[in-house]
Amino acid sequence: MASNQLVKDPFNVIITGVGGQGNVMASRILSNMLVQKGYFVTIGETFGASQRGGSVMSHIRISSHSTWSPQVPKGRAHIVVTLEPIEAIRVLANYGNEEVKVLTNTRPIYPAGVIAGESAYPAIEEIEATLKKLSHGVWLIDATEEAVKLGNPILGNIIMIGALSALGDLPVNRDDFNAVIRRTLPGDKVADNLKAFDMGAALLKN
């Protein structure tokens, strides 16, 4: 059992994005980082049909003593990490509260209705203003852009995990990440993932 370093127990993290952004993998890696430290973690996620361009959401429940429900109750998210900016707003409508912290990638993935001109996508400044009103703190990171620089946009999810670790609210660090990816990823992917993790941590600190 873990020595309880959680600010809240259960501590609730929600990771969201759009199908194909590596949402599921990000929540898996983060959860494994916590499990290897002895925490109980429950991940609730929807995928399957949702992967076809729909919103994808993982609820991560972290506790030092028991298994929690795979769905966070309304208004009880502590940290929201989103791989797509408007998804953060969507999540806060159900799970937000005055104390929540929001970490979001700024790269939009336009919904089909927006591309078709049926609905409007807000400017990133508007999104930021909205998120600020609805949270205790907001961190915006252009993770996709940075990931493209690393050679693969999918690494955006790892950049976000790096940033989340650097935020300091969760008892996880680079060593935990390193241990998990060495166990779960093919060897040739480890270096790039570490680079992405470090980049995320650095971006948060700036």
């Binding site: 361009g53 408007i86 707003i89 807000p122 609805l134």
Partner: peptide
């Protein structure tokens, strides 16, 4: 908070229809 959050999502988070 609830009202503001719901309104923000209605205005600022356009629906994401499933697509091919």
């Amino acid at each position: 908070y609830d009202q503001l959050a719901k309104l923000s999502a209605f205005v600022g988070a356009p629906a994401r229809d499933q697509v091919f």
